[in-house]
Write a protein that binds this DNA or RNA. Structure first.
Length: 888
RNA sequence: GGGCGGGUAGCUCAGUUGGGAGAGCACCGGCCUUACAAGCCGGGGGUCACAGGUUCAAGCCCUGUUCCGCCUACCA
């Protein structure tokens, strides 16, 4: 072991080295059989096509913090990793590859295409996993899963068959969202609505056997070719006297009925609605109610079908122009006005989605949603922060059936066969060979399932379900799911539904929803704005630990995270600070090799103080992590390490460490120093695993990985670790006195190397004794050449008042009286401002009568303290003015 | 249309049962003080969006106004 640390912390090699070490030592592995205290998390599986972005980084960092923390608490932790096969996205990637080779999937054929996808996966699919490792993720990698794995596929098939048998999956002709580019149906959730400046066209549909007609309005004129009715609201007074029953559909010259339907909005347009059951969700419903024919005029390729007559083959948007021109020519286009409306886009490729009629598979969501709602209502699953519950409920209450079939090749093929002879549909766990009718002419459904269908099973499919494995017994339900709100519906709600349906138990006890770092599609970070921050670049330049600590400190924020490199740099400095504190500590430990062995409990105030502070930090970090208060925990540690341990403690103990002789005292302090750093490293490790592991191995007596070190006990009598109010009070007085002197130095522009003499005049007994005891400490920290405790105010001194004492810094001959006068006036003004507020309170009868006693007492105390302070300052100001007067 | 969140220091944001307004960065001044200049010491800076209300007491609770953002939806 080499205890010499380099001067600055260099994360690069350290990170690679320790990550490999952890893996080779098997420190991430969960015990199969679990045990009493198990803790489990399933990772939100990133897309196999994905590259690490800020969202992953935050998400994974938080999970890693919890897992490492839980291990230190002695739990048996399972963190289940894996990736998602991302049907449409992955297929798109490989299709692009084929296109660059001048071919396409249809030429290649289904089987060969799927082969290609697997090849692609083998070659590139692990990228994101390696990127997660660079973040330090302590997943149990030996258990890594993929939604297309054999085991998971078995689970998918079982779930599909069971739901079908339970009547919760059905197939039918419905309007679905169709992406003409991806050539597949999409679930409602997969459609993004983009506000678009469109046009509203008003078109006259003439009556068949009388003059006049109805004017309908539409944003998609091309769909008129498929109109099979015009609807009006039965309550519409404008049409009370309407006798016509039919209108003539222009261009197509088709007679279509006028139907009455209360869906029609009385206030919109003319109150007459063209009905296209094959290309609009609402029209589809109206069509069902009035038994209207469905004419499909737009095909799956986004071009007009034969039903569109002369427009057959034309692109849908071209057709729109042509139709508008033609109607205008015919004099039927009555009005065109600008119209802002939401246009649906495919979430994968941004192509405008076409509502289209087709045969699809659906999950009947109602019964499943009901259970999912109840589980959260009854707090079997707790959503943190609670505000998200409302969003969750809102969606589930209004849930619609889930279209799960996709017309692509990459995914779980639907286990349904149709008999080509009798038309019988068979949904089976095992591939059927024959139809009950005797025919062997069976054809399997060509559609695959929505990727989210398989990820909905993730919490139990990854643990081996449908087999009743040890893993499931030990680790299901999982302890917590950590995720962003963007997939609350896509994923969380669906996992809840499936988990409850198939495991009869919630998939996770807690759901922690964290903020989102938006990617290139987001508002805050976008490629076009050029403000995207690549996590891997951050890791390269700042180190993983600095990055992780930044993310943890961000975790309390709201919905958006704005990450600046500046901020990360700040935390890189923090990592370096810890590093140097460790260097200092280790040097002193090395200089006193027997310290630990020979030490008795330290009686020195700095030691007692830091141990008392450590006691509180241990408790606070624990409480914060239990409550998912990541940023609070991170900030507590930051403040403790930098501003208490480094700024005060290390400086305070230097005299003890450097003093000749006094070996016993020094041993006690060195032992305390070592202990505090030791415990702090363990507390910090979940946040910054690499640097803590590196330092850990330089600590004398440390064995093995810091990952195996138990979470520090808050109290340890043997070394004096525990609450120590007396020490805190005394140390606070010391710090106040030191700060007072430094303040004078600063304000009077006196360089640190100029020796100063000071006198402290205590004003109460505690301060008198304490300052007498700690005068050496004060004079050292304040860089005083001499300090007299108990003297009176000398001439030519600058003054400061702390709680319990007046501090005089002798500046005879040096003192700038103007400056000193100004300084005191400023202090007095500050105090006066505060005192006015306090006086007002204490003069208020109501406050005295109604506020709790402890609050009144507190305010009284503050008032007394500040009044005394001000009096001292005022008398000092008087004296300064006298001298000033003498001189002037 | 419905719902949700936010407006706190120049910037990015904390502030969890209402009880003396915070951090980081930036800024100003002084320092190479034997762990750290990736540092040390000191300092300035806020009518907590606006207007009311409840309360002894409001950044925090209630009402309204306004600006920004997000989610969701079947007004063509």
């Amino acid at each position: 072991m080499d205890s010499k640390l380099d001067k600055g912390y260099e994360p690069h090699d350290v990170e690679a080295h320790w990550y490999a070490f952890w893996e080779s030592e098997g420190l991430f592995a969960a015990k199969e059989e679990g045990g009493d205290d198990t803790y489990s998390i399933v990772i939100p599986p990133p897309n196999v096509t994905g590259v690490l972005h800020m969202g992953h980084a935050l998400n994974v960092t938080l999970q890693d913090i919890l897992c490492r923390y839980r291990r230190s608490k002695g739990d048996n932790v399972l963190w289940m990793p894996g990736t998602d096969h991302a049907g449409i996205a992955t297929q798109n990637v490989v299709e692009r590859q084929l296109a660059s080779e001048g071919t396409d999937r249809h030429q290649v054929g289904r089987e060969a295409f799927i082969e290609r996808v697997w090849e692609w996966r083998k070659q590139y699919g692990g990228a994101i996993i390696n990127q997660l490792k660079r973040l330090g993720a302590s997943c149990d990698w030996d258990r890594e899963r993929f939604t297309m794995d054999e085991g998971l596929s078995r689970a998918v098939r079982k779930v599909f068959v069971d739901l079908y048998d339970q009547g919760l999956i059905y197939r039918g002709d419905y309007i679905i969202n169709w992406c003409p580019r991806c050539h597949t149906a999409l679930a409602d959730l997969e459609v993004e609505h983009e506000q678009t400046d469109g046009k509203l066209y008003q078109i006259l549909y003439p009556f068949v056997d009388q003059e006049g007609g109805l004017i309908v309005a539409t944003t998609r004129p091309e769909t008129m070719l498929g109109d099979t009715a015009v609807a009006i609201n039965p309550k519409d007074e404008r049409y009370e006297d309407l006798t016509a029953e039919k209108v003539m559909l222009p261009i197509m010259n088709r007679e279509i009925p006028i139907v009455k339907d209360s869906y029609v909005d009385l206030k919109f347009g003319t109150g007459a609605l063209k009905v296209t059951p094959a290309h609009d969700v609402n029209d589809f419903e109206i069509g069902l109610r009035h038994d209207l024919p469905r004419v499909k005029v737009i095909g799956e390729d986004g071009c007009m079908t034969a039903e569109a007559g002369e427009f057959e083959g034309m692109d849908r948007f071209e057709c729109r122009k042509a139709i508008v021109a033609k109607l205008d020519e015919m004099g039927l286009l009555k009005k065109v006005e600008p119209h802002d409306h939401g246009v649906g886009q495919c979430y994968r490729c941004k192509t405008t989605v076409e509502p289209n009629l087709s045969k699809q598979w659906f999950v009947k969501a109602g019964p499943l949603a009901e259970k999912a709602i109840k589980a959260v209502e009854s707090k079997k699953t707790r959503i943190v922060p609670e505000v998200w519950e409302k969003t969750y409920f809102e969606w589930l209450y209004n849930i619609r059936d889930w279209c799960i079939s996709r017309q692509i090749w990459w995914g779980h093929r639907i286990p349904a066969w149709t008999c080509q002879d009798c038309g019988e549909v068979m949904v089976r766990l095992e591939d059927p060979e024959k139809c009950p009718c005797g025919s062997a002419n069976l054809q399997q459904e060509s559609d695959v399932l929505d990727t989210w269908f398989s990820s909905a099973l993730w919490p139990f499919s990854t643990m081996g379900w449908p087999d009743q494995t040890e893993l499931l017994k030990a680790y299901y339900p999982t302890s917590v799911l950590i995720t962003g709100f963007d997939i609350l519906f896509f994923w969380v709600a669906r996992m809840m539904m499936m988990g409850l349906q198939f495991m009869d138990e919630v998939p996770f006890k807690d759901v922690y929803i964290h903020a989102l770092v938006r990617d290139e599609n987001g508002e805050k970070m976008s490629k076009s704005k050029g403000n995207v921050i690549d996590p891997l670049e951050v890791i390269e330049s700042q180190g993983t630990d600095a990055f992780r600590f930044t993310l943890a400190s961000f975790a309390a924020m709201g919905r958006d995270i704005k990450l600046s490199v500046k901020r990360i740099e700040g935390y890189r400095h923090f990592i370096n600070k810890i590093w140097n504190a460790a260097r200092f500590t280790l040097t002193n430990v090395e200089n006193n090799p027997d310290a630990a062995a020979k030490a008795s409990k330290s009686t020195a105030i700095p030691d007692r103080w830091i141990l008392s502070r450590l006691n509180q930090v241990i408790l606070q970090v624990e409480a914060d992590l239990e409550a998912y208060q990541f940023s609070s925990a991170a900030n507590i540690l930051y403040k403790f390490m930098w501003h208490e341990f480094c700024d005060w403690y290390l400086e305070a103990i230097k005299p003890i460490l450097y003093r000749e002789g006094a070996e016993e005292e020094r041993n006690a302090t060195v032992a305390t120093l070592q202990r505090v750093l030791n415990d702090a490293l363990v507390l910090l490790h979940p946040f910054i695993p690499f640097v803590t592991e590196e330092i850990w191995h330089h600590m004398p007596g440390a064995e093995g990985s810091i990952m195996k070190a138990p979470y520090p006990a808050a109290v340890d009598e043997a070394v004096g670790l525990g609450p120590d109010k007396d020490a805190e009070k005394e140390m606070e007085l010391v710090m106040a006195a030191v700060t007072a002197v430094r303040n004078i130095r600063g304000e009077m522009n006196i360089p640190p190397n100029q020796a100063l003499a000071a006198i402290i005049e205590p004003t109460d007994d505690f301060a008198k004794e304490a300052l007498a005891r700690e005068s050496g400490l004060v004079s050292n920290l304040a860089r005083l050449s001499s300090l007299e405790v108990g003297g009176k105010r000398p001439k030519g001194a600058a003054t400061a008042v702390v709680d319990g004492a007046s501090v005089y810094v002798l500046l005879e001959g040096v003192i700038d009286l103007d400056k000193e006068e100004a300084r005191l006036e400023k202090e007095i003004a500050k105090l006066t401002k505060e005192l006015v507020k306090l006086d007002k309170k204490l003069n208020n009868e109501d406050f005295l009568a109604k506020a709790p006693d402890n609050v009144v007492e507190k305010v009284r105390g503050q008032q007394a303290e500040m009044t005394e302070k001000r009096e001292h300052l005022e008398s000092n100001l008087e004296k300064v003015r006298e001298i000033h007067g003498d001189q002037g």
